[in-house]
Amino acid sequence: MKGLCLLVVAVMAVGCHGCPDGWLDVNGSCFYFHQDQSMPWEDAERFCETSGGSLAKIGSAKELRAFYEYILTYSLSGSYWLGASDQGYEGDWLWVSDNSRVDRGTPFWAIHNGIFGWDHEPSGGTEENCLLLDENRKHYFNDVNCNLIHHPLCMT
């Protein structure tokens, strides 16, 4: 009986799906929206690493939708750094966690109105090399300057 009680306490401390309290379980990975922290992208990357994880990777439309619903459900504010950049080679967006390419276009990237009409992000050229889950773009992907101050979105 004592062993069962300890098991129940351990499950409650970690959460039903294996994520710590306050973390979001999406497809077996745990994500944390750090509302109380804001920093440039490189600092956010180090911050997540010291927490035992990395900046988040969103690899499917289902995951993006889960994040959007979580943000709306809990009325989170602000934009969140994601773990991808094109700092290595302009226009070649890679997830830092596994060096895989970031999917382009719909449903991930925001759209913008430019000289030639509507087009998808990324559009910032060499000045915007870090990936953001952008509050001003309905939490779609946007390329922004890495020195801007935003919240880290960490994953384990």
Rank of each mutant, 00 (worst) to 15 (best):
D92G: 08
D86T: 13
L4G: 13
A56M: 03
F33C: 09
F67I: 05
G114W: 09
N27A: 14
A56I: 06
L94I: 09
D143Y: 12
G114M: 12
E127G: 10
V8H: 08
G15P: 15
S85T: 05
S123R: 01
W95I: 02
A61P: 11
W109M: 14
L82D: 04
C5F: 14
C48M: 02
W23L: 07
R104A: 14
F47S: 01
G52M: 07
C30M: 05
Y32D: 14
S79T: 03
I111D: 15
D43T: 01
L6F: 08
E127V: 14
G114R: 08
V11N: 03
P122D: 02
G83M: 04
S51T: 05
E128D: 13
L132E: 01
R137P: 13
I71E: 03
G105Q: 04
E128L: 06
N136H: 07
D134W: 14
D21P: 15
V9K: 11
G125T: 12
H34E: 15
C48E: 02
D43C: 00
R137T: 12
Y32L: 10
W93E: 08
D43W: 00
G53P: 03
L76N: 04
G114H: 09
C130Q: 00
L82P: 05
V102H: 02
G59L: 03
V9W: 06
Y80V: 05
L6G: 11
W81T: 01
H34C: 14
F141Q: 09
V96D: 02
L55Y: 00
K62M: 08
Y140W: 09
N129D: 14
L76Y: 12
S60Y: 04
C130E: 00
F116C: 13
H17Y: 15
A110K: 04
L55F: 00
E135K: 06
H139V: 10
L64R: 00
K57Q: 02
E45F: 00
H34Q: 12
V144H: 06
E69A: 07
G18D: 15
A84T: 01
H34I: 11
G124K: 00
F141L: 11
S51M: 08
F141M: 11
V11R: 04
D86E: 02
G28M: 10
F67N: 02
K62L: 10
Y140R: 09
Y89S: 12
K62I: 10
C130H: 00
S123A: 12
D119C: 08
G124M: 06
R46V: 07
Q35N: 13
V102A: 06
H120K: 02
I115G: 08
W93F: 13
L24V: 15
V102L: 07
G59Y: 03
D86A: 07
H34G: 11
F141D: 12
C19I: 14
Y80D: 06
L82T: 06
M39L: 15
L72D: 08
T126C: 03
L7E: 12
N142G: 12
G15D: 13
N129P: 15
G88I: 03
L131G: 07
S38N: 05
A110F: 09
E135Y: 10
A10W: 07
N129A: 10
L6W: 07
Q87Y: 02
W81L: 01
G78D: 07
G117H: 11
V14D: 09
W41T: 00
G52S: 05
D134A: 15
